[in-house]
Amino acid sequence: MNKGGFVTAMSAHGSITKKDAEYFLTIFADTLRDSLQQDARIALPGIGVFTVEERAARTGRNPGNGREIRIPAKKVVKFKTAKEIANVVA
């Protein structure tokens, strides 16, 4: 499902206009991004938990030529799904 389909589903499920649904989705995405930039842990009951973790530097291998390369350390966003969602998908 893409953004348009999700907005349509939100508007139908919540009995709101598509314009309002898109506005709420944009606010949610902006707030999530801003919070994760500050390394916040975001727990959304019934949805899951977003965290920022540090990935250590490591040695990898270039698949094209097989040579070793150095992969620098970086921060990554992790998401752990809530049981309610995981059980529906399983």
Rank of each mutant, 00 (worst) to 15 (best):
V77Q: 01
G5E: 15
E68P: 01
A12S: 15
N62G: 03
V7D: 00
N65I: 00
E68M: 10
F6W: 07
S11P: 05
I42F: 02
L44N: 08
P45K: 11
T8V: 10
N2D: 14
A9H: 09
K80T: 06
K74Q: 03
F28G: 05
T81M: 13
A86T: 12
D34C: 02
K3S: 08
T31P: 01
V88M: 11
A12F: 00
M1W: 03
I71S: 03
G14V: 08
G5W: 00
A29E: 15
V7F: 03
E22G: 14
N65C: 02
I42V: 15
R58E: 02
T17Q: 01
I27Q: 13
N2H: 10
G14F: 12
K3I: 04
A43E: 14
H13G: 15
T8W: 00
A43W: 00
G14M: 11
I47H: 09
R70N: 09
I71A: 02
S35T: 06
T8E: 15
R55P: 02
G4M: 03
Y23H: 12
A40K: 15
K74G: 07
G60F: 03
K75V: 05
Q37N: 14
V89N: 01
K19P: 03
G14N: 12
Q38V: 09
G60S: 05
D30N: 13
D34M: 06
I27G: 10
K19L: 12
I27H: 11
L44W: 07
A21G: 02
T17G: 15
P45A: 07
D30R: 11
R33L: 12
T26A: 13
P72C: 02
V89T: 01
Q37T: 13
L44K: 07
G64N: 10
R41G: 02
S15T: 11
G64V: 00
S15L: 10
G4F: 02
H13A: 15
I85D: 07
